[in-house]
Amino acid sequence: MQKTSDGQNYKLLHLCMDFGTQMLEVGAETSRVEDSVKRILEAHDKKAISIFAIPTLLLVTFEDDEGIPYTSSVRIKNITSHFDRLDRLNHLSRTLCSGEVKSLEYFQEQLDLIRQSKLYKLPVLLLAAVVVGIGFSYVFGGTVADILWSGPIALAMKAFYELLDRAKLNSTYVNLMASFSAGFLAELFFRLNLLAHPSIVTVAVVMNLVPGMLLTNAIYDIIHKDFTAGLNKLIEAVFVAVALAVGTGSAVLLFR
């Protein structure tokens, strides 16, 4: 009897860790992760629940009815943005917290299902980058040539970015190199008299890389008093912004 409840508790702990890890990895704010895991454990009538999440670590502790503590921790490595998965995880936590479904098998099944859901395919991502480049170069007031050339430049930059990103390098280097390639191509095509405003094209293409998610999540964490997590993200956002500036700036410097 003791053993089965023990097993159940460990399984619940394991599932909660998996859930929290997935949530952090797809770009949820830490307060949301802490809150969701806490609610799931509350729905399973656990006591002394304590969750701690920062972008690089997740800690979960709870006690069973006899006051025996269960705890586990995970080091989180790569954070991406995959909002479809975030939405589904959020929906799952709502279902679990409503108290209708208490079976751990359902929890496990849904988590595996969500883990398998894929991001858009690479060609679609490249096309999205092209669309962002073209859209911004129009609204920034580029000429027809600017608008047309921002497409291929955005394509090249995004392809380069994805290549570096999949090599799991640090975000500062990836953004530096990608923004440099964008600036370099824009300045080069300007020298070849293919486009009129290299500045508009560079900015339009680099708008693909702006650290909007890091900035917003940092603000959100700081609002929710998670200063450690907020600062963590804010520093990365500042580094990415500086990388973008230095990347494009050095391209300009090269062609002076």
Binding site: G27, R85, Y120, L125, A129, V131, V132, G135, V139, G212
Partner: peptide
């Protein structure tokens, strides 16, 4: 159209769907 286009481009890159 341009504003809608870059907004949709962002949404796709951040894995928003449905």
């Amino acid at each position: 159209l341009a504003s809608l286009a870059f907004s949709a481009g962002y949404a796709v890159q951040y894995g928003v769907r449905g």
